Each structure stands twice: as C-alpha cells, then as structure tokens.
Computed example of a mutant assay.
Amino acid sequence: MKTYATIDSSEESLIKVTFTGEKSTDENFNQYLSELSKIYDNRINLSIIFDARKAGIPKLSHQKKQATWLSEHWKLMEKYCNGTAYVISNAAIRAVLKVIFSFQNQPVPYKIFSTIDEAKEWVSTIDNKKAKKIS
C-alpha cells in the first residue's frame, strides 16, 4: 500500500501532516485518519500544519469521511488543538478543503498559506495566544 500522508510528531506540540501525492484508496485513507486520531492520545495542546502542496484530489467518499472524522473528533480538537494551518498551492485542493468544510467545519482556528514558513509563523502566534489564555 502506498502512503497517502505522513504524520510527523517529532516536535511535541507541532504536528506536521504531509500529503504524499498518492491517490486516496480506502486502505491508505483509513490509515491516514487512524494515524491522525492518534495525535490526540497524549491529551496535550498541539497545532497542526497540513502540507498539501503535493496532495491529489481525494475521492468524494473520502472527503465525506474526513468530514465525519472532524465531527467525531470535534471535542478532542476543541480541547487540545490550538489551530490548523494548511499549506496549499493548488486552487483545486483549496476547493476540496471548502467541500470538506461544507460537510463539517472544524472547531479550531485555521488558515490557508502558500508556504511552510508562513504556516509555521502563524502556528507560533496561535500557540502563544493559547498559552497566555491558560496562564
């Protein structure tokens, strides 16, 4: 099976999800969602950068499955996720994100960027805002 996305959690509070460019299949998409769920196992505050510069357009059924995942993980995201940054350079992939959010929005702030550096900068600002609210 070819991997749909890789998830890097080497930095404790910053998760990087990188789409590989492989077509979504039921098997690799389910694996992606399963791995995405695991990032909440430690119950710590985190931010996520989705690097979709190489992403292909997932099947509509997978877009709906992503929306269902958002709904099922709403409370975990609300409690532990500071926000999500999307790095998307392709207009079609931006449209896919809008479709997913038309099925189910997400409970945390998000923003779309053209570069990883912009995404990292924004994530650092939302991390700081949340830390100030907690203190």
Rank of each mutant, 00 (worst) to 15 (best):
Y110A: 00
E118D: 15
A67D: 10
E12D: 10
I134P: 07
S89R: 06
S37A: 14
Q66G: 02
T125C: 08
E11Y: 11
A92C: 03
Q104A: 13
R43F: 11
E78S: 11
N82G: 05
K79P: 05
K59Y: 13
K133D: 15
K65I: 08
G56Y: 05
I48M: 01
L70W: 08
W74S: 01
Y80P: 07
I49M: 09
E22H: 05
N45V: 08
V87Y: 00
L14K: 01
K2R: 12
W74R: 10
V123A: 11
K133N: 15
M1W: 05
P109W: 03
T84M: 13
H73K: 13
K132T: 14
I93G: 01
K23R: 09
S89Q: 10
T20W: 03
S124N: 14
N128V: 11
Y86P: 08
I39D: 13
W122V: 05
K130V: 14
Q104Y: 01
K133Y: 15
V99T: 15
E11I: 15
Y32K: 02
K59S: 11
L46P: 09
T3W: 06
G21Q: 00
E78P: 02
S47R: 07
L60R: 08
Y32L: 11
P109G: 09
I48P: 01
A67Y: 09
K130R: 15
D26M: 04
D41N: 12
T25E: 10
T68K: 11
W69N: 12
S10V: 05
A92Q: 02
K98C: 04
T68Q: 04
D41F: 08
T68E: 13
I49V: 14
T6G: 02
D8E: 00
V108H: 03
K16M: 06
F29I: 04
E27W: 08
T84W: 09
K54V: 07
E12S: 12
I57T: 09
I88Q: 02
K133I: 14
E78V: 06
Y86A: 06
T20E: 05
A85Y: 13
Q106T: 07
S89F: 04
K133V: 15
F113T: 05
A85D: 05
L70P: 02
F50K: 13
L76Y: 15
E22L: 02
N28I: 12
S124D: 09
P58L: 00
S13P: 05
R94T: 11
K120F: 06
R94Q: 05
D51L: 01
T3D: 09
S89I: 08
V17K: 01
Y4K: 07
